[in-house]
Simulated assay, not measured.
Amino acid sequence: MNTEQLKQEIIDYSKEIGIDKIGFASADVFGELKERLKRQQSLKYQSGFEKGSVEERTEPQRLLPEAQSILSIAIAYPTRMENAPKGTKEDRRGIFARASWGIDYHVVLRDRLEKLSAFIQEKVPDVQNKVMVDTGELSDRAVAERAGIGFSGKNTAIITPEFGSFVYLGELITNIPFVPDEPVEDSCGDCTKCLDACPTGALVQGGQLNAQRCIAFLTQTKDFLPDEFRTKIGNRVYGCDTCQVVCPRNKKIDFHIHPEFEPENEIAKPKLKPMLRISNREFKETYGHIAGSWRGKKPLQRNALIALAHFRDETAVEEIIAVLTNDPRPVIRGTAAWALGKIGTEKAYEAIKSAMEKEQDEQVLYEMEKGLDFEKELSLK
């Protein structure tokens, strides 16, 4: 088998099926990453969404015993929305991060990688391949960095020379010994714009992220959002793009190459009030095809309540009261009580006081007290 010729055939085919960039890496142990992950664990910086042990995430042979190479792919996604809808005082809007615009990228990248795997199998019938996209054990970024897709920026994103950091990543482990590509030189230099701009200080230092403070992670949690972050998420209902948007390497980057990733404006920037009353069926029909739906509607509804509080949207008081009164989920009732207090109308405070008389859940009662504390603060001014 001529691996150099096969490599070129794979590169050519990857372009035919809509892969914007492909790189080849060795399947050696990711030693530096292993130490970094252990450090992350000891500092409790992990999100909890990571799959597999540290060893599985850094030793490709644990996933494919005969692994010799890893193919890394990158697909660009858009950063700007045409005719983006604007919120009004009567209809405030939230925002999904760009990585959740269009069809769920896991689906799209897996399709591309499966086609790539099938192509290789046609050429080498006894090949062993394993495909992974984001939810696999390997670190997409570590593989992409080793494969020369881009360098790992201080914002922990892979920054490509062509598409900036607005790319989705996936990989294919194989037992074919390809000649690896050269890594891309790090060019962050002295720039610290992403560290300076992070709303919660989640970027502890260049290239190190405390996921527990990252808004992108926090918007996906299902419990009560810690108080210190409620004023930080603004109108984000899913994800955060700040550290990418401020990056000089992303200036003027906006690629509309793949129709699958074009934003549906009313979904990417949804009206907040309708999100509060959406049924499970409506949620699945409206949002089920996007990446931001993977945790279900609960985190998004909690974030929508916080966003309405951020806007101090008095037009939403009636609907938030309905949530406070009728929703069976403590996190949603409690967040509704806090939001009403933050909005701060007389009717909102009366609703909290009335609901307190029937509420049994200790955490919800605590949130109600916090909501009423806003009234006390106003009376002291």
Rank of each mutant, 00 (worst) to 15 (best):
M356H: 03
V124S: 04
E185N: 09
T58Y: 04
A99R: 12
I95Q: 15
T79E: 06
P177D: 10
S293F: 10
V107W: 06
R295F: 13
K370G: 00
D186C: 07
K271I: 08
F374L: 00
P328M: 09
K284S: 06
P78T: 06
M275Q: 11
L43K: 15
K89M: 14
A211K: 12
F374M: 01
H256W: 05
E318V: 12
H106L: 08
E375M: 11
A157G: 08
L64Y: 01
H258F: 02
R277Q: 12
E50A: 05
I149C: 03
A322S: 15
P60S: 02
V364S: 01
A157E: 14
D181K: 10
P199R: 03
E260L: 00
K21Y: 01
L378H: 10
V184L: 07
D190Y: 04
A337C: 11
S117V: 04
T58E: 00
C247Y: 12
K297D: 02
Q208V: 15
L43E: 14
E260H: 03
P183E: 14
P85S: 11
I306L: 14
K89R: 12
I70C: 12
D126K: 13
P65M: 08
K342P: 03
T335I: 05
K193I: 06
E346A: 13
Y13V: 01
E16R: 15
V245D: 15
V54T: 06
K252L: 15
A99G: 04
T79S: 14
D140Y: 08
Y77H: 10
T79H: 02
I22R: 06
L6F: 00
T79F: 03
T221Q: 13
E35T: 11
V54F: 00
R295M: 15
K86W: 09
T160K: 07
Y45V: 11
A99W: 14
Q212A: 06
N303E: 02
G201Q: 00
A304F: 00
A304T: 01
L324I: 07
R213P: 01
P60E: 05
V127A: 04
L276W: 00
E319N: 15
P78H: 02
K154E: 13
K38M: 14
E266A: 10
D12W: 01
K222D: 09
H289T: 12
V331T: 12
K358W: 03
G52Q: 01
A84S: 10
G341L: 02
E4H: 13
V124H: 05
F119D: 03
Q128M: 09
E367G: 07
